[in-house]
Design a protein around this nucleic acid. Structure first.
Ligand code: SF4
Ligand code: SF4
Lengths: 161, 161
DNA sequence: CATATAATGGACATTACAGGTCCATAATAA
DNA sequence: TTATTATGGACCTGTAATGTCCATTATATG
């Protein structure tokens, strides 16, 4: 289990857009050469971000992308959910919900097993809650907040130059 | 991004072993028929769990698997790390560590770009911390604790029967 | 209007990996 | 010795991520 490259690209593209900002449209060429991704591939990603309302795009001369809302209003969770999808990380394998098989009931009912639970399967509960912990954190961090972090780092590495 | 089926199977298998317990070895046949997984596939998973010291296995007649330590000492994180691997969820795409490309530096140095950061890249920081939130939660929950949850659920669904 | 520019979306091709099977081998109890 | 049971290597398969190509559409500019 890993985040897809698309998510990495998407996050970085948004960081770049946030840095540039001020009405200026940033073209796919600029983005792709900055990130080292192909134009075609990155454009797919940008397209998804647009469809989900994270960026605006304008075609034609001087066209390109810009953030659709303030960088402080775009959370990491937004980006992850667009590019990784919104399914749960943990998916049950029998039917859609609840069970938890027991050893004893094994041979008896192979197709409609006598399972122990209703809604509150503890395995799924733990896994979903774990996912929630991560998502909560991702939701608390925005492109802007990351950019601020970057700023302070910038300062201290600039001195090295 | 999703947890693999292997993780689901692994967790369930351990739940079953914990339920049975008391010196008795549970064979792959029992496990696979309870979970609805093939013997061959599940045995690979069990093998991994054994290599990582979560279960013990004994071959031959009356052989099978049992927990290698108390169910309360096996965390969800243990299982996830064995079956999903221990790499970080978020992987950087240029080089191994730090940068964050800037638009301006794009055309200049295509191969060794002038990046802004040392260790503290904010994007990676956020993503790694998010992962940590999830892992912390997974570490706090054990096969035993899930089983306890299960017990209480059992009680209230048993009345329905 | 004509033209150059730039994003879009559909249709591919490629690659990687999860998921799954098979079998020969080794270990163990009876 | 025999039946049983886990092991691990080799292999196959399907699907999703990655990546490319192109025809179309939209826009600014002169
Ligand atoms: S986690 Fe619970 S509900 Fe999901 S498959 Fe397992 S037993 Fe069933
Ligand atoms: S997250 Fe930071 S360190 Fe990682 S690739 Fe992006 S800029 Fe580089």
């Amino acid at each position: 289990m890993q985040f897809s490259k698309s998510t990495a690209y998407g996050l970085h593209a948004l960081m770049l857009l946030a840095k540039s900002e001020r009405g200026r449209n940033v073209g796919i060429k600029e983005l792709s050469s900055s990130l080292g991704a192909s134009e075609s591939y990155l454009s797919k990603i940008m397209s998804k971000l647009r469809q989900d309302g994270l960026v605006r795009a304008v075609t034609g001369v001087n066209g390109g992308y810009e953030l659709a809302r303030a960088a402080s209003e775009i959370t990491f969770l937004d980006v992850v959910q667009v590019l990784e999808g919104r399914q749960h990380l943990y998916e049950c394998f029998h039917g859609s919900d609840h069970p938890l098989p027991s050893l004893e009931a094994a041979g008896d009912e192979p197709e409609t097993p006598e399972f122990a639970f209703g809604e509150g399967c503890p395995v799924k509960q733990v896994m979903d809650a774990a996912e929630l912990q991560m998502n909560r954190y991702l939701q608390q961090h925005t492109i802007q907040s990351a950019l601020n972090q970057a700023g302070s780092c910038d300062a201290h590495t600039a001195s090295k130059k």
